[in-house]
Amino acid sequence: MTTTETTGTAPAAQPDGTPLLHASGVIMRFGGLTAVRNVDLTVNSGEIVGLIGPNGAGKTTFFNCLTGLYVPTEGSVSYRGTVLPPKPHLVTKAGIARTFQNIRLFANMTVLENVLVGRHTRTREGLLSALIRGPRYHKAEARSRARAMELLEFTGLAGKADHLARNLPYGEQRKLEIARALASEPGLLLLDEPTAGMNPQETRATEELVFAIRDQGIAVLVIEHDMRFIFNLCDRVAVLVQGQKLIEGTSDVVQSDDRVIAAYLGEPIATTEGDAGTDAGTDGATDAETDTDPDGGSAAGEQENDR
């Protein structure tokens, strides 16, 4: 009947701290298609880790395995040393929050309500206390609202708290998804292409936002196609190609790896002799970005359909 603030979800902001998330040997098969092949990944507290790879590499699928939306065919995911059950709500409760590649807001709820839904795991009032509305209920509700408003301030959406989510411009919808995810007071935030469809300014702002999130002691694992964004931001980058982890390391290591460039140019992974320069690599990235646009189109199209 009371709100329980989670304890211990705000570790100190120190990169390369203790392992937070540890995925080992994750395999995801859809019938004959193996979308994720034996991927290991560790995210330490206070870290920003990037996950890149061409379209269809299995990045989103890997996220879904981490968050319990898919039950991995093999392998396990543990968070703070305990193995996570493959149920999305339990994963969120444990402290992992996420956003979606194709924005999945609660379109007909207000911006504030969207964030309040994110508080679900951190509050406990059930139906009875909602019907009785005792002082405890009001206190918990007020605290949730205050926290939600804080998050809206943090993401710069406070002025639009009463707007319907579907009426927000595209960039703000992405921000709202992040605010909603943060409302669950996560220790680790998974962002799936947070800047897809954004203009350069908005991308820059998102970069700042991700740094600010990390400074609050929340580790971030981010999928992105914008190479500049990734290499500016990430302490470590892992590259996924055809479901396999190709390489993992610091930005410099990954940036100069020939196989990565080759993969972005669409050459077979095995051939490592690619002599394409960094220029070509950026081109590849731009291509990949354009490819994701139909997604953005459909999301905004839905939003347009409101009348």
Binding site: T67, H89, A130
Partner: peptide
């Protein structure tokens, strides 16, 4: 009262997008 509460918001969230709702811990 139910509609404007934690539980009511989770109902509406499920109506709007069940996958996103479960990913938000519902």
């Amino acid at each position: 009262r139910a509609a404007d509460s934690r539980i009511g918001r989770s109902w509406i969230a499920i109506r709007e997008d069940e996958t996103a709702a479960t990913a938000m811990g519902i």
